[in-house]
């Protein structure tokens, strides 16, 4: 099986360790994941702000970069959702039948990380060790656009040493929402502050989620509040073992 990593533009530029964690994890599970260097972005930042024409080049690059792979893994529910649900609209907007059929080929191959592990590889115990108290925020697009259900939870529950604390009002949005975070910054911060308060209430050391975008928002608030709670991507927790702890040190 030829597997490609779609690292996402945000992880590429701001959180490269998330991408490295996915590579570590998948190699440990026997998957020789490739990184097609032509990739850029799924197009979502432009689409969700209403700039559909501006998303066309990104979607073109996406389908070219991932052409010929059997599966595409991405550590983001939001980007997987964009690839699976939005790219065909962009292709239609571009009025390019070749692009449309390329999107039809690639979009079903895109899996969010927890989907890939549980559904494609059929594992829930990935052999991870992470001796910390964590709480998990299910991000909106993984929950409602993809329907990942309890896959991330099952993966976390199988991690040795990990103590999982229930997050109150877990299903409620953190308030990131892409450009919503700056266009409606006050509302975004009000939503995020409630999320951060719920996180603190759990007493967890680490907040885990499957989207770096939500984490940069909630984490930015937790940090400004000097809460001492750290944020980590699900991939980083799952990549951790007795031999090498990811990130938390």
């Amino acid at each position: 099986m030829k597997v490609a990593l779609q690292v996402t533009c945000l992880n590429d530029a701001l959180f490269p360790d998330v991408g490295k964690a996915v590579v570590t994890l998948l190699r440990r599970l026997g998957v020789d994941v490739d990184f097609p260097e032509a990739q850029t972005c799924c197009g979502q930042p432009m689409v969700n702000t209403g700039y559909l024409d501006e998303a066309v080049p990104a979607v073109r690059r996406f389908v070219e970069a991932f052409d010929g792979y059997d599966a595409v893994v991405t550590p983001s529910g939001s980007c997987a959702g964009s690839a699976r649900h939005q790219q065909r609209l962009i292709a239609a907007r571009a009025g390019d039948p070749a692009l449309a059929s390329a999107v039809e080929r690639t979009s079903p191959l895109v899996h969010e990380l927890s989907e890939f592990l549980v559904d494609v590889l059929g594992v829930t115990d990935v052999g991870a060790y992470f001796p910390h108290t964590v709480t998990y925020h299910p991000t909106c697009h993984s929950l409602r656009m993809l329907g990942v259900g309890d896959r991330p939870r099952r993966l976390l529950e199988a991690v040795r040493g990990l103590r999982l604390r229930e997050l109150p009002a877990a299903r409620e949005c953190c308030g990131f929402g892409g450009t919503f975070a700056v266009k409606n910054a006050d509302t975004s911060v009000a939503m995020g502050s409630d999320k951060a308060r719920h996180v603190r209430e759990t007493g967890a050391e680490v907040l885990v989620a499957g989207d770096s975008s939500c984490l940069v928002h909630i984490g930015g608030l937790l940090s400004r509040q000097r809460s001492g709670v750290r944020t980590m991507h699900l991939a980083e927790v799952l990549a951790s073992t007795e031999d090498r702890a990811e990130a938390v040190r």
Partner: peptide, 27 residues
């Protein structure tokens, strides 16, 4: 400022993922 009014923002890393991949041949 709309972001950093209430939220910290991590500084960009010294090396992007793609730079790391190219430099190390994927590690």
């Amino acid at each position: 400022a709309a972001w950093t009014g209430a939220r910290d923002l991590p500084a960009p890393p010294a090396e992007s993922f793609r730079q790391w991949w190219a430099r190390t041949d994927g590690g």
